[in-house]
Design a protein around this nucleic acid. Structure first.
Lengths: 237, 237
DNA sequence: TGGGATTTGTTCCCGCGTTCACAAGCTCTT
DNA sequence: AAGAGCTTGTGAACGCGGGAACAAATCCCA
C-alpha cells in the first residue's frame, strides 16, 4: 500500500509555489492590513520591526502575525525582526499588487460615485477604467475624467480594458443581472455592494459589503448591552 | 438503558433571555440576511417557507439556517416550515430593530455623503441624526435635511440625540481621535470606514469596513487564478 | 383514527483558525 | 570565542463553526 496522495492534502514535493498553495483565507484577509501598517512604518523611516511592534500596529496578536507571515516564507531574522521595506514588497507581490488591476464600476449612484472619486484605490494598485449606469439620463456625464457609459457597452468595456474585477453598486434588483453579464463578459472577481445575494458560477469570487448589515450587527450588540445593564441592575437590587 | 426522550441539556426554567445569552457571532452576522430574505418573501405574499426555501433565498446551507434559527428559539413547525411574517418579526426584535437607532456620521467626504443619502438605512431602523465634519468650509452646508456641524459640537450632538452608534468616514489620520471622542461622549458602537486600525476600550464594539482591502483580497485570488492557469498549461505540456 | 410523508431541531463529527509555548537561530558583548 | 539575550518560526492543544444525519413532531389522507 503506497501512500499515494490520498489522505495527504499537501504534497511536500512542490518546487516553489508550495508557499502560495495554501494560504488560509483568514490570513489573506489580514495581509492587506499588514501591508498598510508596513507602509506607514516605512514612511516614518522605520527600517526594522519586531513581530510585536507590527502586531500592535495592525491590531492583532503577535503570534498570529508571525504565523500569517510564515505562510509567505521566512522573511524575518531571529533576534532582530523583520525588514520593513522588504517585507512590504514581498506581501505586495504575493497579494498581487505589483501590477495594476483595471476595475469597472456598475451603478453610479451615491455609493458608486463615492467609490469613483475615492483616491485610495488608485494608490493601492487599482485603476477604475469604466463607469457604467443603466439610467440614460446619467450616461455621458463626466466623473473623474471618465464618461459614464450605458449598460449596453458593459461587455465591450470589460473586454477592451481586460477587466478582471467588477464592482456592483446598483439597486438590489439589478444586481444579479449585472453579475451575470459581468461573468459572461469575462470578469472573475466581483465586489458586491448591492443588498442582494448573488450567485455566480464556480471559479468566480464574490465579496459582499453590506452597509446596513454592519449597522444591524452593531445594533444587536447595543441591544444586548442595554439588556445586560437592565439585568445587572435587577440582580443588584 | 431507557431511551428516555428527555436528556434535556437546556433548563426550561429560564424565562426568555436564555436564548439571547449565547448566539454565535457568525449567526448574528447572518440574521440580517435572513431578515432581508424574509421581508422579500413577505412582500411577495408568501405565508410559509421551509428551511430549504429560506436557505436558498439567503444563499446558505439549509442545515446552517436551521441551526441559526434554533438559537433564537423554536419558531418553526415540523412538517410545515416557518411562518414568514412571524419569523421576520422575531428576528427583527431579537436583532434590536424594533426600535430606531440614532446614528451620527463623522466625516462628510465622498463616502460620508453617500451614506447620508443612502435611503436603505432609514428603512432598516437607522436614523441619521447628525453630520459632523472638521472642515469649516463645509460646516453649515445642508445635506438631506441636515446641516453639517463642526467637530466641536460632536459631544453635544451625541448626548442630545442619545446616539449609541457612530460612523467614521474621515481620513485615516483623524480616525483614532474621532473614535476617542465618540467613546468619551458615550458612543458604544462604531462603524469605521477609515483605513486605519482604531483601538477602543472594552465594552465598545468596532466593525471595520475597508474597501481597498476587499479589492486586495480579490486581487490575490485573481493572481492565483492566473498562476494556476500558467501551471496547468505547463503541466499539460 | 392510524400510518405515511414531510420538515424541524439537535447531536455528532470534522476541519479550520487561534493561541500558547518552546526550540532554533541570530546578534552583541565581554 | 563563548555565552547571554532576543526574536522568529512552528508544533501541539483547543475552541468554534459547518455539515451530515437522524430522531422528534406535525400534517394529511384514507
Amino acid at each position: 500500500m503506497r501512500t499515494v496522495s490520498r489522505t495527504r492534502p499537501r504534497e511536500p514535493a512542490e518546487p516553489v509555489p508550495d508557499a502560495a498553495r495554501g494560504i488560509p483565507d483568514a490570513t489573506i484577509a489580514r495581509l492587506p492590513v499588514y501591508l498598510r501598517s508596513l507602509t506607514s512604518l516605512c514612511d516614518r523611516g522605520t527600517v526594522t520591526a519586531s513581530s510585536d511592534e507590527l502586531a500592535r500596529a495592525a491590531g492583532v496578536n503577535s503570534a498570529k502575525l508571525r504565523k500569517d507571515l510564515s505562510y509567505l516564507g521566512s522573511y524575518g531574522t531571529r533576534g532582530v525582526g523583520y525588514d520593513v521595506a522588504y517585507l512590504r514588497y514581498e506581501i505586495a507581490r504575493q497579494i498581487g499588487l505589483s501590477q495594476d488591476w483595471p476595475v469597472v464600476i456598475v451603478g453610479v449612484g451615491n455609493l458608486g460615485q463615492a467609490l469613483a472619486k475615492y483616491a485610495g484605490f488608485r494608490s493601492r494598485g487599482f485603476r477604475i477604467v469604466a463607469l457604467v449606469d443603466a439610467d440614460p439620463g446619467r450616461v455621458g456625464e463626466a466623473l473623474e475624467q471618465l464618461r459614464i457609459r450605458p449598460l449596453a457597452e458593459l461587455e465591450a468595456l470589460v473586454e477592451q480594458h481586460q477587466v478582471a474585477i467588477g464592482v456592483i453598486t446598483t439597486p438590489a434588483g439589478a444586481a444579479q443581472d449585472v453579475a451575470d453579464r459581468l461573468v459572461t463578459a469575462g470578469v472573475t472577481s466581483i465586489l458586491n455592494f448591492a443588498p442582494a445575494v448573488i450567485t455566480v458560477p464556480d471559479g468566480v469570487d464574490v465579496r459582499k459589503v453590506d452597509l446596513s448589515i454592519e449597522l444591524q450587527i452593531l445594533a444587536y450588540h447595543e441591544q444586548r448591552k442595554l439588556a445586560h445593564l437592565a439585568t445587572d441592575v435587577g440582580e443588584s437590587a
